[in-house]
Design a protein around this nucleic acid. Structure first.
Length: 246
DNA sequence: TCATTAAATTGTT
DNA sequence: AACAATTTAATGA
């Protein structure tokens, strides 16, 4: 779908190009490859721009790429029969996804949609399989990725049961700041309060209030257009053992 | 480089 | 949801 032969009006409006060097610097798994593997993989990686609302991949489509976020913000969601949709996760820079469907060559089970203007990278599925067959480092990365994502989904199930908005915001932020899944984020997560509200399913006002509470607790710092993590552990455990009441 | 203006984002009600 | 205040980005001298 990142390929140019897409039906008009659907998916990414995409001109795909080869990745630039600085974009390749933001591809975490390239560092795990041997030099010759890296040369081959880097040449295969393509990038495209996604406008807000664009679908990077769609439920039911056969997997053509393993995708990664170079810049911007995506969301992973699922459509229900009644027309509503459920958001599973936000995908900030450094995150790679779709390995499950790529591995089995089965259709995507979720939609990936751009929340803001984003740069999305893709590794063609045949190259993905070649790396699985030839590169130990790549296998380590994918395995680690799957393990970490499993942990994230288990944590997400608990989070969804919580009713305290402050805690839900904290846990969602902890997930987005995950350095293993999203190494491109670093200390500063570029996300607006509106986008965060949309991901978590709260009003922007309530998110704003929660963020300022978390800032007062010393867990984060609120900045214009983004959030800086001060204490990731506090975000993860907030509301479970502790002192904060509301 | 600086000043001005528009746009985006945040803070409040 | 609406509005004001603040921050950033864009423009042009």
């Amino acid at each position: 779908m990142l390929l140019g032969r897409e039906r008009p009006g659907s998916s990414i409006r995409d001109r795909v190009r080869a990745a630039t060097d600085s974009e390749l610097d933001n591809v975490p798994w390239l560092l795990r490859l041997t030099p010759s593997e890296r040369r081959r993989a880097a040449a295969a990686v393509v990038v495209g721009e996604a406008e807000p609302g664009d679908l990077v991949c769609r439920i039911g489509r056969p997997p053509t790429f393993w995708f990664g976020v170079v810049e911007g913000l995506l969301k992973m969601s699922n459509d229900n029969a009644d027309g509503t949709s459920m958001t599973y996760s936000g995908l900030p820079p450094g995150g790679w996804f779709g390995e499950g469907t790529a591995l089995k060559r089965e259709p995507y089970r979720y939609n990936i949609q751009a929340l803001r203007r984003s740069v999305v990278a893709g590794l063609p599925i045949d190259e993905f399989h070649w790396l699985l067959d030839h590169s130990i480092g790549f296998n380590r990365f994918v395995m680690n990725q799957l393990n970490e994502r499993l942990g994230q989904f288990i944590a997400a199930r608990e989070t969804d049961r919580l009713n305290d908005p402050d805690v839900r915001v904290a846990r969602n932020l902890a997930a987005l700041f995950n350095p293993v899944l999203f190494p491109g984020v670093g200390e500063l997560l570029r996300i607006t309060q509106q986008e965060l509200a949309y991901l978590i399913g709260l009003s922007r006002q309530r998110v704003n209030e929660a963020l300022r509470t978390l800032q007062a607790q010393g867990a984060i710092r609120v900045e214009y257009g983004g959030l800086r993590v001060i204490d990731l552990g506090a975000l993860r455990t907030s509301g479970s053992a502790g002192k904060e009441g509301r």
